[in-house]
Lab assay of single mutants.
Amino acid sequence: EETGVRVELAEEDDGEKIAIKLWLRIEDIKKLKGKYKDNEAIEFSFDLERDVPEDVAQEMVESGYVCEGDHKTMAKAIKDRVSLIKRK
């Protein structure tokens, strides 16, 4: 499903790190509610043992990086990427 958002690794995952750096990349602004630039990327750290995707997305909303209306879309994108990383 195309959401307009993609999360990718910002650094090589060696399988050892607990906290990883990720990029939340805006790919299609028409599919989102907030005002973003095409190909805008937000770099953030995610602790694989402690962080919760919904909470991280909420922090982005509170910091003004993400529109409240896009919270669920961002949280799902983060959750999907993190579950792929954890499965390795």
Rank of each mutant, 00 (worst) to 15 (best):
E40F: 14
I85A: 05
E27M: 15
A41F: 13
I26F: 13
E49Y: 09
D51R: 00
S63F: 08
R50N: 14
K33V: 08
V61A: 02
W23Y: 14
E49T: 11
A77C: 07
D55F: 06
I18S: 15
I29M: 14
K17T: 09
R87T: 06
E59Q: 14
L24V: 08
L84T: 14
K86M: 04
K30P: 07
D47Q: 00
Y65N: 07
A10C: 06
H71D: 04
E27V: 15
L9D: 04
L48K: 04
D55Y: 09
K79M: 07
K30F: 03
E12D: 13
V52E: 12
K72W: 10
Y36T: 05
S45M: 15
L84D: 11
D55M: 13
A19Y: 12
E27A: 12
I29P: 15
R25Q: 10
A10K: 08
G4S: 08
K31M: 10
G15M: 07
L9V: 07
I29R: 15
V66E: 03
P53E: 05
L24Y: 06
E1V: 05
T73Q: 13
G34C: 03
K30D: 11
A57N: 00
V5C: 08
W23C: 15
K31H: 10
R25P: 14
N39T: 09
L9E: 09
A41M: 14
E16H: 11
T73L: 11
K33G: 07
I29H: 15
K72L: 12
I20M: 10
I78H: 00
K76A: 09
R81M: 06
D70R: 01
G34H: 02
M74R: 01
F46S: 02
E12T: 12
G69R: 12
I42H: 06
M60Y: 01
S45Y: 14
E59T: 13
I42M: 09
P53W: 00
V82A: 01
L84Q: 14
D55V: 13
K86F: 00
V5P: 08
C67Y: 15
R81K: 14
I18A: 15
K33C: 10
R81A: 12
A57S: 04
R50T: 12
W23N: 14
W23Q: 15
L24R: 10
K31P: 08
Y65S: 10
R87Y: 07
A77M: 13
K21F: 02
D38V: 13
M60D: 03
E8I: 09
V61T: 03
I20R: 10
F44N: 00
K17P: 03
I20E: 02
I29G: 15
L24C: 07
D28N: 11
D47C: 03
K79L: 07
K72G: 14
V66W: 01
K79R: 14
E68F: 03
M74Q: 02
V61F: 02
V56S: 02
V82P: 03
E54N: 06
K31N: 10
I18T: 15
A75D: 01
K17S: 14
I18V: 14
E68Q: 13
D55A: 13
I78F: 01
S63G: 11
A77F: 08
K30N: 12
K33T: 08
A19M: 14
L84E: 11
E12P: 14
K35Q: 11
V66K: 00
Q58Y: 10
K76Y: 00
E54D: 11
I42G: 00
R50C: 06
G69I: 12
G69Q: 15
W23F: 14
A19L: 15
K30V: 03
K31F: 06
L24E: 10
S45D: 14
V82I: 13
E11F: 04
V56H: 00
K17N: 12
G15W: 03
E43N: 11
E40K: 12
D38R: 13
K76T: 09
G15H: 08
D51Q: 03
R25C: 10
E49H: 07
A41S: 12
E49M: 09
R81E: 10
A75G: 00
D13S: 07
I85Q: 03
A57K: 00
N39V: 05
L32W: 04
W23D: 10
S45W: 15
A10F: 05
K33S: 09
K79N: 11
S83L: 06
S63W: 06
A41K: 15
N39P: 07
L24W: 03
E43C: 09
D80N: 09
E12V: 11
N39S: 09
K31D: 10
D14P: 08
D47F: 04
R87P: 03
E49S: 12
